[in-house]
Amino acid sequence: MSHRPSPDTFLSSANPPVIARIEWQTVSLAVVIYGGFLAVTWFWQSLPVLVIIGLGGWLVAWHGSLQHEVIHGHPTRSRAVNDAIGWPPLSLWLPYTIYREGHLTHHRDEHLTDPIEDPESSYFTRTAWEKMGLIGRYLALWNTTLLGRLTLGPLVMIASFLLQEASSLFKGDRRRAVLWARHAVGVAVVLTWVVVVCAMPLWLYLFGFVYTGAALSRLRSYAEHRYAEHQDERTAIVENSPLFGLLFLYNNLHVLHHKLPAVPWYRIPVLYRRHRNALVTINGGLVYNGYLDVARRFFLKSHDDPRHPRHHDATSVDAATNA
């Protein structure tokens, strides 16, 4: 039987340094992201469309990575300041407060991938799967391929989230209503800048910035987690990806983030290299050699069965796979 390092042993041996009062690396990153956003939207008429889409999608996805960073207590020790940095809704569809609450719930590692307990799970319960119907199940299966996740995935993610939120509002959730009202103010400011001041067509912003940014974010999350009996083996590592590593602020080395979520992004690579053997053993060897390796394995092949094993009855229908 192979020896698995105890997570507690890893945590004590990693011994990350004390977080600075102000992490200037992250402050600088925020300046680059917001400055880049203002520059691309202001000068968009001087740029080729493909450049606008590439830069716009990158900046919105990068902004999502920045939001993830501030959710975990960076770049200052003031939650109010951090939240102010992450709050502007460049993606339009996801209120920062909802993202913050859901993501912190996601970090209860004992519930990782559970479609009931983990807000970021891509799995379905047996009941939800059977309610989807044949077309819904086909779409869900396509969404488990990398190509499906990058093309259809953003639409599925955004639409399902907005429908769920609309249901809460229709049921009279007053706290949610206040939260969405504040978010709407931010969306109005962003769209006023983009559409009115910069005169960018709304379709270009929605596709080039919002949808493309969501697709890049779906690339990050695609191979992050998969179900395993042991909770530590549910979190993956994607190595050797310097470009996407920077875009995702090194959350591609995801098991390290789940073991030490307070470590700032710029310290993750060195800490990972120092403790790689222990981390790979802890997560059961769930390692990919860059995103090309992920694409090679799963471009047109399902990453996993979308029905969660703990919520799947053997008598459940398999119409989507056997039809």
Rank of each mutant, 00 (worst) to 15 (best):
H74T: 04
G56H: 07
S78K: 05
L50S: 12
S65E: 04
L38Y: 13
V60M: 09
F37V: 10
P88N: 10
L50R: 04
V31S: 14
I53E: 06
H72L: 09
V70E: 07
I33L: 12
A84W: 15
I53G: 08
I85W: 01
G54E: 13
V31E: 13
P88G: 04
L59M: 08
W62M: 02
Q45K: 06
L38K: 15
I33K: 03
A80R: 11
T41M: 13
H74V: 02
Q45R: 13
H63S: 07
L50H: 09
W58L: 00
I53Y: 15
W42K: 05
W42Q: 11
G54Y: 07
W87Q: 07
I33H: 00
G64E: 01
A39H: 08
W62E: 03
P75E: 00
G54S: 13
H63L: 07
W87L: 08
L47M: 15
L38P: 06
P75V: 05
A84R: 14
D83P: 09
G57R: 01
N82I: 11
P89Y: 04
S65H: 04
G36V: 01
V32L: 15
D83S: 08
A39K: 13
A61N: 09
H74W: 10
R79I: 12
P75R: 01
E69H: 02
L59N: 02
W58E: 01
W62K: 00
I52D: 12
H74L: 05
A39G: 11
W87S: 08
Y34C: 15
A61Y: 01
I85R: 01
G57M: 03
L47I: 11
P48G: 11
G35Q: 07
W42R: 04
W87N: 09
H63M: 13
F37L: 14
A39Q: 07
V32R: 07
Y34H: 14
R77G: 15
A80P: 04
W44G: 02
P89C: 12
L59K: 00
P75N: 04
W42M: 09
L47P: 05
R77E: 12
S78Y: 08
P75L: 03
E69K: 00
E69N: 00
